[in-house]
Amino acid sequence: MTGVWALLGALAVAGAIGVLLKVREGRIYRRDSVDLPAPVRDLLAPGVTLVQLSTTFCAPCRHAKVVLSDLADRTDGLSHAELDVTNLPDVAAQLGVMRTPTTLALTADGVEVLRVGGVPKRDSLLAALQPHLP
């Protein structure tokens, strides 16, 4: 009988996690700027840079890369760079990033404009970035 309850519990938990992650996918939020680690600072370009943190084991990172590089190609003053943090866990920790893909929008001075968890939604991201673009 315990097994039946465990199975029902597992189904419920999986459903809850699934809904939660789908709702939060591509969510845009803001955090206070931190001192950027050197590997991130090296990627900054004029205008706004979308720094996408990825790992080797992250399947959705590829989708995020396609969305972001296309958006950057079509938008003036916006560039995209991917940083593989598989072997740079300290960089991820310093930025407070726990899941990949996470994308940080940073100005040339290293000020954080916003960040996105999961695969970004193109239109809402562009709208949120608009005030910071030339």
Binding site: A14, T55, A59, A93, M98, R99, T100
Partner: peptide, 22 residues
């Protein structure tokens, strides 16, 4: 394990992969 397998099967989500850093 079943939670992880089901999320993978139904939604293509790989919890362990996204949470690798964690």
């Amino acid at each position: 394990a079943l939670v992880a397998a089901l999320l993978n099967a139904a939604l293509g989500l790989c919890l362990g992969c996204e949470m690798y850093l964690l």
